[in-house]
Amino acid sequence: MTVTTMDETNEEKKTGELPENEGNVITLVGEKSQLSEEVERKGCEEILAALNEDEKSRLSDEHMALRHLRAEKGDAKLAIKKLKKALQWRKEFGVDKIKNAFSKNGDQEMRSVMTLENETGKCYVRGYDKEGRAVFYMRPVLENTKEEINQMRQLVYHVERAIACTARKSGLEKFNIVIDYKGFRLRDAPPMSTSKHTLEILQDYYPERLHRAYMFNPPFIFRTFWNLIKAFVDPVTKQKIVFCHGKAGLVEMADKFDMSTVEDFTGGTAGELRAFDSQEYLASTPFDHTFDEA
């Protein structure tokens, strides 16, 4: 992990090192510090000191330790425990193999899995909010598979892609999720194990990454599904969930997004955008670009 100063944001630093000047300010681009500078600096030092060299080499980026520290409200010991678990998960789950499935030397089996999982367009990253955070769209009624592990690989691919797109576009840390529940029926609800697994990945392994989750067109029957899973949603994540109904939902979107760039089911003013093309998105579009990005 690198801890950067306000004027060193664009300088490359070796993973696991702290700047020599102990008076430097820890910062995440576009994010307000949740703790005092001293607490964050000392906490990050404690976390990095607790990692072995292999763990340090597997940090996803220079701010991973800081995000875990903030997620645990400054409790460095708990952050160390959670971070070590996340690093082990990334290794065992094969996050790098998932991310690189469509690179020149990508794993062919993983590529086949991702191609099948994505063929209906149930998940994709497209566009940004006004501040440059990528938008990860989910459309549950287009679910086409039943194998949980591969569905989770699909989730991780898109989380990683949304993060990469946001970083390239604006240098920010977080991304948005927009879920379209149009046509959702109770039989479309995923098994409880899948819902819990999804929440575990987002909350435990990607803390401080979600900006907002917008829920569009939730039918009355969705309340039954929500009542089943909300007990597993941590309080911080609950605060980020926005249920978008009618005009109030459109106002919420218009405040945060250029409405000419979002899908029509969110109130987009451009009508239907170009139809999603899974093959183009996976195989031809750079990983750090959203679909149909100019």
Rank of each mutant, 00 (worst) to 15 (best):
G74R: 13
V178P: 01
F265H: 09
A294R: 08
F184M: 06
M1R: 07
E17P: 04
A76G: 00
C123G: 15
E38A: 13
D96T: 12
N217T: 03
N217F: 07
M259A: 07
F291H: 03
G106L: 11
L83V: 06
R223W: 12
K104W: 01
E20W: 06
R185S: 05
P219I: 00
Y205I: 12
S103M: 06
K73G: 15
A164N: 07
G267V: 08
D180V: 14
G30V: 05
G106N: 03
Q203I: 15
D107L: 05
I149N: 15
D75L: 05
L48T: 01
D129H: 08
T261W: 02
N10V: 05
L69W: 12
T290G: 04
K247Q: 13
R185A: 13
K13I: 07
Y214G: 03
T194P: 00
S60I: 09
R168K: 13
E200F: 10
N176D: 03
K104F: 14
Q239M: 13
T9A: 11
F102C: 10
P190W: 09
N105P: 09
T266F: 00
G132M: 04
V95K: 09
V39L: 04
F216I: 09
I179S: 13
E55P: 10
E55R: 02
V113Q: 07
H158Q: 08
M110V: 13
E173C: 03
M6W: 11
Y128L: 00
F175D: 00
P190G: 09
E53I: 14
